[in-house]
């Protein structure tokens, strides 16, 4: 019981920390990676709350698809910037 509580507290701290870092880090690529990490931690939180349905959806949509979309957008932004510099 206490082990579970300790894990939950650790998870809550990690969630808050990764959320804060996602918003405060100045580099976009790091923010995206942290966002994905936040999504995966959120998945564990949903499992701890015994809601496996939401955990599945969070892992697939929140962390997976949204993360990939953000990474793709970041890549496109960088490419555009490079092209502008070259011309």
């Amino acid at each position: 019981m206490t082990l579970g509580l300790a894990f939950d507290l650790l998870l809550a701290c990690a969630l808050l920390w990764s959320a804060w870092r996602t918003l405060s880090t100045p580099r976009l690529d790091r923010a995206i990676i942290l966002f994905i990490a936040f999504g995966l931690l959120m998945t564990i939180a949903w499992i701890r709350l015994s809601a496996p349905d939401i955990a599945l959806a969070e892992a697939a949509i929140g962390a997976g698809l949204t993360g990939a979309l953000l990474l793709d957008a970041y890549g496109a932004l960088r490419q555009r910037k490079r092209r502008r510099k070259a011309s």
Partner: peptide
């Protein structure tokens, strides 16, 4: 969930 995996 199944749709999300397909999309992935």
């Amino acid at each position: 969930q199944a749709g999300a995996v397909l999309a992935a």
